[in-house]
Amino acid sequence: MLTKKNSLVVPGTLESLSALRQYTMDACTTAGLTKDQAYGLSLAIDEIATNIMVHGYGKNGLTGNISIVAEITDENVTLVMEDTSPEFDARKLAVPPAESLKKPLEERPIGGLGVYLTLQNVDRFDYQRIGGVNRNSFIIKRAKK
């Protein structure tokens, strides 16, 4: 059975991050995910949304919206986030290698953890460019009852 939660559309600015997290947490509650799963999915949404807001829109001098919609099936919870900033596949960003995560903080680069945390906290992360739209999909598997 498919349950689709009403979508949320917010301005693509950092002030919208908490609304996106709240939407995600609500969807996770509806789907009966564990608290850890819900937090992980919220973190993943936050990280990719931040990239869109800062790099996709902000650094390109653009403004635009971000939409998010949750689809809940018996197997999965899928959050689909769309924006109209320039084409960008976050999966192509280099994630820190394992050795880098063992380094002391004084030897670490400041950035690069956002996509790593995204990938660590979802079962699958997909990207498509459709028309002029970036579509990022975040998938969490539901526990079998």
Binding site: R21, Y39, S42, L43, D46, E47, T50, P104, L105, E106, R108, I110, G111, L113, G114, Y116, L117
Partner: peptide, 20 residues
């Protein structure tokens, strides 16, 4: 209750700013 990588970056910044 929540910390994104933006928070982790500040911990790295703190270490690098204050010294090892």
């Amino acid at each position: 209750t929540f910390m994104a990588s933006a928070g982790l970056r500040i911990l790295i910044f703190a270490k690098q700013k204050m010294g090892a």
